[in-house]
């Protein structure tokens, strides 16, 4: 018993700090990339509002087409353009990431806030993915960048909260923390699979 405890604590703290670094950098990168994408989308949206015949820079072909996605009701899910949420949210995420890089220890309630924010982000993004794939039937490259960053931020926050025991999950679940990057990859591959299947006919024509 004593032996296991002894052996455990140094490993635990080591893993803890490592995960903390990983989380911080995940937030920073997701924040920067997400902010850039959301900002671009907002600028394109404004250009579209000024001139309805404007063709966004990311309208490349029938499937990869921002214009057809940005002009939908879903692009204003809460009555205002979605990228506004993105610009605000990713700025927040970036800020938190930078704060974490200072190795500052944040209170428990703050982590719950991060969990709430990233969970909202990931749920919203999956609603958008569903709408994009099966209702609008077009993909918007900048939006897809946001999908990736929102999923990354959610996995980073959740695994950090699980590993640190803040979510009160059994110890066994804590091992998941070290698999966060793999989790993101699996998740993205699943979505890539859905995209491939949904637009299969189109992808095949590109090869001919």
């Amino acid at each position: 018993m004593a032996e296991t405890l002894q052996a455990r604590s140094p490993v635990q703290t080591e893993a803890g700090t490592q995960a903390g670094r990983g989380t911080a950098w995940s937030f920073v990168l997701a924040g920067i990339v997400g902010l850039a994408a959301a900002f671009t989308l907002l600028v394109e949206k404004i250009a579209l509002l000024k001139d309805s015949s404007y063709v966004p820079s990311c309208s490349i072909n029938p499937v990869l087409s921002c214009g057809s996605v940005m002009n939908t009701d879903q692009a204003e899910a809460f009555g205002f353009p979605n990228p506004i949420l993105g610009v605000a949210g990713f700025t927040g995420l970036l800020t938190i990431g930078v704060i974490l890089l200072t190795r500052l220890t944040l209170p428990r309630w703050f982590w719950w806030g991060i969990q709430a924010g990233t969970t909202f982000g990931v749920v919203f993004v999956h609603w958008l993915i569903f709408q994009s794939l099966y209702r609008i039937e077009a993909l918007c490259p900048y939006c897809m960048v946001v999908w990736v960053t929102a999923i990354t931020a959610f996995v980073a926050a959740t695994t950090q909260n699980v590993t640190s025991g803040r979510l009160g999950l059994p110890r066994r679940a804590e091992a998941i923390g070290s698999y966060a990057p793999s989790l993101v990859i699996v998740w993205l591959v699943l979505i890539a699979g859905l995209i491939l299947v949904q637009f299969w006919d189109y992808w095949v024509t590109l090869l001919k």
């Binding site: 698999y179 990057p181 793999s182 990859i185 699996v186």
Partner: peptide, 10 residues
């Protein structure tokens, strides 16, 4: 481990 798992999945 992550590299291995991710590479296998991809």
């Amino acid at each position: 481990r992550n590299v291995i798992v991710s590479s296998l999945v991809i």
